[in-house]
Computed example of a mutant assay.
Amino acid sequence: MTELRTASMSPPWEGLEGRDRHAACLMAARAGERAALDVLVAELTPLVWHVARGNGLDRATAEDVVQTVWLALLRHLDRLSEPRALVSWLITTTKREASRTRRRGANQVELPDELADQLTNDDPPPDAKVLRDERDRQLWAAFHRLPPRCQELLRMTVLAGRVEYRAVAEALRMPHGSIGPTRGRCLSSLRTLYDGEAGR
Rank of each mutant, 00 (worst) to 15 (best):
L193A: 14
M27Y: 13
I91N: 10
C186F: 11
L146Q: 05
T2V: 05
R155D: 10
E164Q: 14
S99V: 01
S10H: 03
E152K: 13
L77Q: 04
R104V: 00
M1Q: 01
R75T: 08
I91W: 06
V69I: 01
A198D: 12
R59I: 09
A31S: 11
T45I: 06
R191L: 08
P125Y: 15
A167H: 11
V66W: 02
A52I: 01
R75P: 03
V66M: 14
E164S: 14
E134G: 05
L153H: 09
P46V: 08
S189E: 11
G54P: 04
A167T: 03
G32R: 07
W70P: 01
L80I: 07
C186A: 15
G161E: 04
E97P: 00
Y194G: 05
A106R: 00
R183P: 04
E170G: 13
T157F: 09
S10E: 12
T68Y: 12
L139K: 03
R104D: 13
K95D: 03
L119Y: 09
R183D: 11
W49A: 05
S99F: 10
R34W: 14
E43Y: 09
K129I: 02
S88D: 12
W140H: 08
C150Y: 07
R137C: 08
T101F: 13
E197C: 07
E197P: 00
R100E: 10
P125S: 04
L131W: 11
R96T: 07
Q67F: 07
Q138N: 13
I179E: 13
E134C: 04
S8C: 02
L139D: 04
L80Y: 00
P11E: 14
A60Q: 06
R104Y: 09
R103Y: 09
